[in-house]
Amino acid sequence: MNSDTQNRRVFLKNAALGSLALSLSGTGGVGAIPTATGKRVGIIGLDTSHSTAFTKALNTDETTTAYSGYRVVAAYPYGSRDIETSTKRIAGYTDEIRKLNVAIVDSIDELLRQVDVVLLETNDGQLHREQAIQVLKTGKRVFIDKPMAASLTDVMAIFDASTTYRVPIFTASSLRYIKGVEGLDKRSVLGADTFSPAVLEKTHPDLFWYGIHGVEALYTVMGTGCQDVVRTHTDGTDLVVGRWADGRVGTFRGTRTGKHDYGGTVYTQNGNVTLGPYGGYEPLLKAIIHYFETGEVPVTPAETIEIFAFMEAADESKRRGGAAVRLDHILKKATR
């Protein structure tokens, strides 16, 4: 590893540990001269319902004003190739996307020649590092859907590339915009409990695949600064307790039985706030369009890095029978 790369990794680690915002100034699409300048959206990955949901919202004439005229014009289907629950959906979602006047292309390179910005929707986080860097090299802004990657090491590498190519990146679960968050004075938050499904997928660390939804909701209201994590695991449930450096406690409950639902409670100096119900994709999509327009990211790299360190610490706690695991130890391992 050369000294420049090492310096960038040290900087990212320190940002996460110190909860610092990393300021990145981005460029727009490089060399693109579309009919509506800068408004052509490309999708990578047609193995998730997010791809069709976003396309239907953007390509409906009645909503183009709400989304500043951005429209999906091209899509590359792959996408997962070895996760059965994802691969079996590609053909059907590809047909749906075609009906929305979207060109289906054979490669990411071909996609990037036709678009100005990218929605990286591939359901398989193992592919995100390679796919995201391919986009970043062109200078195009890219939203990376959950999970940002299938390891904390890959998350750090993507942010490293974001710094190298000077393109800010935005990644988030739609649960960041769950009802109850709007108008919340986060300075008054004393603690929080959140819950979401936490279905497991053998190719990803436990909480990365689906538990990330509830973990991100927790971080949305608590902010950064978690010091250590303890996890209790059963076949049907995970309970992860995080202890913040300022003494606050935040918990995430991940479920694998019963009805899938999302929500939580935020404890504030002025009373309790209920999170939920889930409000759909529209708030997230509006945030994505704002990012495409301005290059401003609503979630700092430091916060995203800590979210993934929290989930990896939870896995380590499970391996150690529920022992407390410090996030700074997890971050140090990821940057070696």
Rank of each mutant, 00 (worst) to 15 (best):
H233P: 04
R231M: 15
G247N: 02
I158S: 01
G223C: 07
T203F: 03
T251W: 01
S173A: 08
T268W: 03
A132T: 11
D235M: 09
T164S: 11
Q269C: 12
T234S: 15
I133W: 02
S162A: 14
M156I: 12
L190H: 08
A245E: 02
L190W: 10
E216V: 04
G191F: 07
V266C: 11
D261H: 15
T237P: 07
Q227C: 15
K146D: 08
P197G: 04
L175A: 06
I144L: 04
F143L: 11
V229C: 07
F159C: 02
V241K: 07
V240N: 00
G223S: 04
T138Y: 14
G254M: 07
D228Y: 07
T234W: 02
S162G: 14
F195M: 08
S174W: 00
K186Y: 01
V155C: 08
L136M: 05
Y262V: 13
V249W: 12
G250C: 04
T163G: 10
I212L: 09
T220A: 11
S173Q: 02
R141D: 06
P205I: 05
G211T: 13
R253I: 15
R231S: 14
T251K: 10
S188T: 10
H204D: 06
K146E: 05
G183V: 04
V167P: 01
D246C: 06
V135K: 01
T164E: 09
D238S: 08
K146P: 07
H260T: 13
R253M: 11
E201K: 15
N270H: 14
L239N: 12
A161N: 11
V142N: 00
G250K: 06
S173M: 03
L207I: 10
G271Q: 05
V215E: 01
V221F: 03
F159K: 00
G263F: 11
A172T: 12
D145G: 15
Y165V: 06
Y165T: 13
I212V: 15
G223T: 12
K179L: 09
Y219D: 05
G258K: 07
N272C: 04
W209R: 06
G250W: 00
S173I: 00
L152E: 01
L175C: 11
T220W: 03
A157S: 07
S151Q: 05
R248Q: 09
A150R: 01
R256E: 08
H204P: 03
G258F: 06
T255R: 14
D228L: 02
W244P: 01
T153F: 08
I158K: 01
G247W: 02
L136W: 00
A150G: 13
L200Y: 03
V181F: 10
K259F: 08
E182G: 03
V221T: 14
K179F: 02
Y165S: 10
A192T: 12
Q269T: 14
D160A: 10
L152W: 10
F208W: 07
K202N: 07
R176N: 05
G183I: 12
V142T: 10
K186R: 15
V215A: 08
D246T: 03
E130M: 11
D145P: 07
E130F: 12
